[in-house]
Design a protein around this nucleic acid. Structure first.
Lengths: 157, 157
DNA sequence: GAATTATCGCTTGACGTCTAACAATAATTT
DNA sequence: AAATTATTGTTAGACGTCAAGCGATAATTC
C-alpha cells in the first residue's frame, strides 16, 4: 500500500522530499508500535527494552549520561526509565568512588536473564520486517538516512 | 558521521538489517526534534502542527476518527490534541445533524492563518534536510520504507 | 421492529519525552 | 587557593501517546 493510500490523501503528493520525510516518520512509528507489542509480553516498554539492550552490549563502564547519549534521550528521561527498571530489580546504579556526582549503570542478574529472553524475539521481528531488503538496498537506505541526519544536526538550531 | 560513531558502539554492527531499523528510528527522532524546535516558535507542538497541516489539505469532511487514521494515532490521542487546539481557538468541532455520535473537525480562521505562517518554514526545513537526495534516491528510499511498513502491519499481531 | 453488534468520542491511568530549573560536585580559570 | 564555569543526576510540570473501558448512538442481523 502506498503512502498516499495509507494516509488517505485526496491528492497525490507533489513533493517527493516531503513524501520521503513522512515515510520515515511513519515507518518509525509502525516499527515502534510493533516493538511495543512484543515488549509488552515481557512487561517491558520500548524505552525499558532499549536500556536493557544497550547495557547488554556495552563494553565499558557507563554513567547515566553515557546511556542518554547512546539512546539519544535527555538525562531526565534516563532518570525516569532507570527508576522503573531499578524498582523491578533489572538494573542497578552503583556509587562510584572518587566521583560523587555520577552513578555507574549495569544490568542485574535478573536484568540479564530477561534481556536474553527478549532479544531473540526482537531479532526475529527485525528480520521479519526487513526480509525483503537485500544487502545493497539496506546499505542505500542507511546511507540516505545518514545524509538526512547530518542535516538535522547542523549547527543552525 | 556513521551510525556506529553516533551511537558510540564499541563494536561494529554485525547485522545490516538491524542497523537499517535503528537508522530509521533514529532519523525519525531527529526529524521530530528539529520539527518541534520550529513549531515551538509558533507555540505549537508537533502533534498540533500535524493536525493543522492535515486539516489544511483535506478536501472532504473529516470526523475525529478520520483525523486519527490520517495521523495514525488513536481516537483518544485525537481528543487530547483537539482539546488543546480548540481551547486556543485554532480548530472547531462542529455538530453534525443526522448523526449525534460524531463531530466534524475544521480549522478556524485563526487556525488557517497560523498554519499558513508555519507551513513555509516547515517546507524549508524539509528541503534543507533532504537537499542532498536526488529524485531516484528519494524514490528508492520511499520504496524500501514502504516494504518495511507492509511487513509491520502483517496480520500476525 | 427488536436484539445484537459496531462505532464514536471521552475518560482514566500509566508511561516516556521534553524543557527548565536546582543542588551537589568537578573541572577550569584566574 | 579562590572564584568561576561546567557537568551530573533529580525534580516538577507540560504534553502526547497508548490501552482499556464507558455510555451514547448507528448499523446490522435476526
Amino acid at each position: 500500500m502506498s503512502l498516499e493510500q495509507e494516509l488517505k490523501l485526496e491528492r497525490p503528493m507533489d513533493d517527493i522530499h516531503h513524501e520521503a520525510i513522512l515515510s520515515i516518520v511513519r515507518t518509525a512509528g509502525l516499527l515502534s508500535l510493533k516493538g511495543s507489542t512484543l515488549f509488552r509480553q515481557f512487561d517491558l516498554t520500548e524505552a525499558q527494552f532499549n536500556v536493557l539492550f544497550s547495557l547488554k552490549y556495552k563494553e565499558t563502564v557507563w554513567t547515566q549520561s553515557d546511556l542518554g547519549k547512546r539512546l539519544v534521550v535527555t538525562r531526565a528521561s534516563v532518570t525516569s526509565v532507570l527508576d522503573k527498571l531499578e524498582s523491578k530489580g533489572l538494573v542497578e546504579r552503583r556509587v562510584v568512588e572518587g566521583n560523587r556526582r555520577i552513578y555507574h549503570v549495569d544490568l542485574t542478574q535478573a536484568g540479564r536473564e530477561l534481556i536474553d529472553k527478549v532479544e531473540p524475539r526482537y531479532r526475529e521481528n527485525i528480520h521479519e520486517v526487513t526480509a525483503s531488503l537485500d544487502r545493497p538496498t539496506c546499505e542505500a537506505l542507511i546511507e540516505s538516512l545518514e545524509k538526512i541526519r547530518v542535516q538535522c544536526t547542523r549547527p543552525d538550531d
